[in-house]
């Protein structure tokens, strides 16, 4: 199953690369015009296009690009000639670091809060947790970020911009990126927490839970031992979805905290029509979704004995 899914994944990536290429082609203007901007003249734009091969027909440029990618060569940025691998490597590392950091805080937090909320459902605690997490997810990310800056940065606890030295130690890095990680945590926690709570509560009406209660088990044991394992599949899926979001959708947080991740790179490149960079970034984002979804499916299959031990 995994091999087939991987094969389908590659096909998905191919289709995505076509779509992205087409979409960027449809945008008005090209790299030469965007870079020269107001100072563009017909001659200089033409010379720029000749230099980069932008005067060739679109399909030809796509095929050349595809040919390179198949051999593992993503080419160079059209705008400044830097190899894509260098350009994206550092940014990808930063993005993954921040995503992981936020996930390490958010996922356990969401699960614990979700389980507690299910355990004490409709209590004051449950209500409070719901209000807090739903409020933080309802505000736009930049607003959450600014609020955190006002209370945690202007008071001197944490830096307002996540300026990380490439050779800073891990502690320093964690300190400097705490606010963006916290913002992301606030943004993604509600979704996972609510799903955990809902999935568990959903099961609490089942006969086997009734049975467990009748046996005299404690509520905590009922939930952890009996309900949770059966609620894992939907929880795993929503966690995977949020992890993918942490990798692909954090451009606003990157901008507010000046964090050099992939999102900003993608936005810059689209606005300059730097197609090779856009393609590479888009493929990385697509890969994140494909792989995380695959992982989620594998894990939810494993969590379900009926699927693991098929007759």
């Amino acid at each position: 199953m995994v091999a087939r899914r991987l094969g389908l994944g590659v096909l998905t990536l191919f289709v995505i690369s076509l779509l992205i290429f087409g979409a960027v082609e449809l945008l008005p203007g090209d790299l030469a015009q965007e870079i020269l901007g107001q100072s563009a003249t017909e001659e200089t734009v033409a010379a720029f296009r000749r230099e980069l091969g932008l005067d060739l027909p679109a399909y030809q440029r796509y095929l050349t690009w595809l040919g390179g990618v198949v051999q593992g060569d993503f080419g160079t940025s059209l705008a400044n000639g830097r190899p894509i691998a260098d350009l994206i490597g550092v940014r990808l590392g930063n993005t993954l670091f921040l995503a992981l950091y936020a996930a390490v805080i958010a996922v356990p937090l969401a699960l614990v809060l979700g389980i507690l909320a299910a355990l004490y459902r409709n209590s004051l605690f449950d209500r409070a947790i719901n209000v807090v997490t739903l409020t933080s997810i309802s505000f736009p990310e930049f607003f959450v970020a600014y609020i955190l800056i006002v209370y945690l940065s202007q008071t001197g606890f944490f830096p307002s911009i996540a300026r990380i030295d490439p050779d800073a130690g891990l502690g320093e890095k964690l300190y400097r990126t705490f606010l963006p990680a916290l913002t992301l945590t606030l943004v993604v926690t509600a979704h996972m927490m609510r799903m955990t709570r809902a999935a568990i509560i959903n099961l609490l009406a089942s006969p086997y839970i009734e049975m467990a209660r009748l046996k005299g088990l404690s509520p905590a044991r009922v939930i952890l031992k009996h309900a949770l394992p059966n609620a894992l599949a939907p929880i795993i899926n929503v966690v995977a979805l949020n992890l993918a979001y942490l990798i692909t959708g954090v451009v606003v947080v990157e901008v507010v905290f000046v964090y050099p991740g992939l999102g900003q790179l993608m936005v810059d490149s689209v606005s300059k029509r730097d197609i090779t960079v856009v393609q590479a970034a888009a493929l990385i984002f697509a890969c994140a979704y494909v792989l995380l979804n695959l992982l989620a499916d594998v894990l939810s299959t494993l969590s379900n004995p009926r699927l693991v031990h098929k007759r």
């Binding site: 400044n80 000639g81 830097r82 810059d268 606005s271």
Partner: peptide
Amino acid sequence: GSTSDSYDPATWD
């Protein structure tokens, strides 16, 4: 400042 900036004076903008 943009990711597409370069050392080439022809494109400084």
